Amino acid sequence: MIQRIQTVYLFFVMLISGILPFWVNLWSDADGTAIFAKNDILVSGAFYLSAFLALIAIVIYKKRKNQFVLNRLNLILNLFLLGFFVYRSLNLSGETTVSEKGIGMLIPIISIVLLVLANRAIKKDEDLVKSVDRLR
């Protein structure tokens, strides 16, 4: 059903990954220009893909196993995105002039936490359905 708690988690992942990176800066260059997700095509593509995977996971609520697998793929995508941000932040710190890390670098962490919570709820539903099937 669409009114389950994992749908709420996935909806938040969709909103956070689809909208927030384009409003919050990811990092600032040495000369003070803020870099958003729309400035880098690969980063914006990864955020859009994460939001799209969350939307697809919401739509296929009847197939819990496929939803679980899709959330894991989304989780891996967000881990790669987080790894890119960590790599980028380590490169930024070695500059001769001071550059800032933005709050937007935390977006994959929030998405990962919400995806783990959604997968936990999906697993709980799947276990509940299996236990009811045993009673028949």
Results as ranks from 00 to 15, higher is better:
53 L>H: 04
91 N>A: 15
97 T>R: 10
55 L>R: 03
88 R>G: 13
112 I>P: 03
118 A>H: 08
105 M>L: 12
53 L>E: 04
103 I>H: 07
28 S>C: 03
28 S>W: 00
102 G>V: 00
111 S>E: 12
102 G>F: 01
65 K>H: 11
34 A>H: 06
120 R>C: 10
76 I>P: 13
39 N>S: 11
119 N>W: 04
84 F>C: 11
20 L>W: 13
42 L>R: 09
104 G>P: 03
45 G>S: 15
42 L>I: 12
93 S>I: 11
114 L>K: 02
60 I>C: 13
108 P>Q: 05
118 A>F: 10
91 N>L: 12
43 V>P: 01
111 S>Q: 08
101 K>W: 02
51 A>R: 02
95 E>A: 08
74 N>F: 02
45 G>A: 14
62 K>Q: 12
30 A>Y: 07
40 D>Y: 09
76 I>V: 15
104 G>T: 00
65 K>L: 11
40 D>F: 04
44 S>T: 06
112 I>R: 05
86 V>Q: 02
46 A>K: 04
71 N>L: 08
34 A>Y: 05
74 N>L: 02
90 L>K: 07
64 R>F: 06
36 F>H: 07
21 P>E: 11
91 N>M: 12
38 K>F: 05
23 W>M: 14
96 T>C: 03
29 D>L: 10
82 L>D: 07
67 Q>N: 14
97 T>A: 13
54 A>I: 01
104 G>A: 06
38 K>P: 00
47 F>P: 03
72 R>L: 14
62 K>V: 04
84 F>I: 10
53 L>T: 02
36 F>T: 02
47 F>I: 06
81 L>Y: 01
102 G>Y: 00
99 S>R: 01
93 S>V: 12
77 L>G: 10
61 Y>L: 12
62 K>D: 08
67 Q>S: 13
77 L>Q: 09
81 L>P: 03
67 Q>E: 15
71 N>G: 15
24 V>D: 07
114 L>V: 05
87 Y>L: 13
55 L>M: 13
48 Y>L: 13
51 A>P: 02
104 G>S: 05
24 V>R: 04
66 N>K: 12
75 L>K: 00
53 L>P: 07
67 Q>F: 08
57 A>V: 05
23 W>P: 00
111 S>P: 08
40 D>G: 01
38 K>S: 14
82 L>I: 08
110 I>V: 15
85 F>T: 02
95 E>Y: 06
106 L>A: 15
40 D>V: 09
72 R>A: 14
83 G>S: 12
108 P>C: 09
109 I>K: 08
89 S>V: 06
71 N>Q: 11
88 R>V: 08
89 S>T: 13
41 I>E: 07
115 L>C: 09
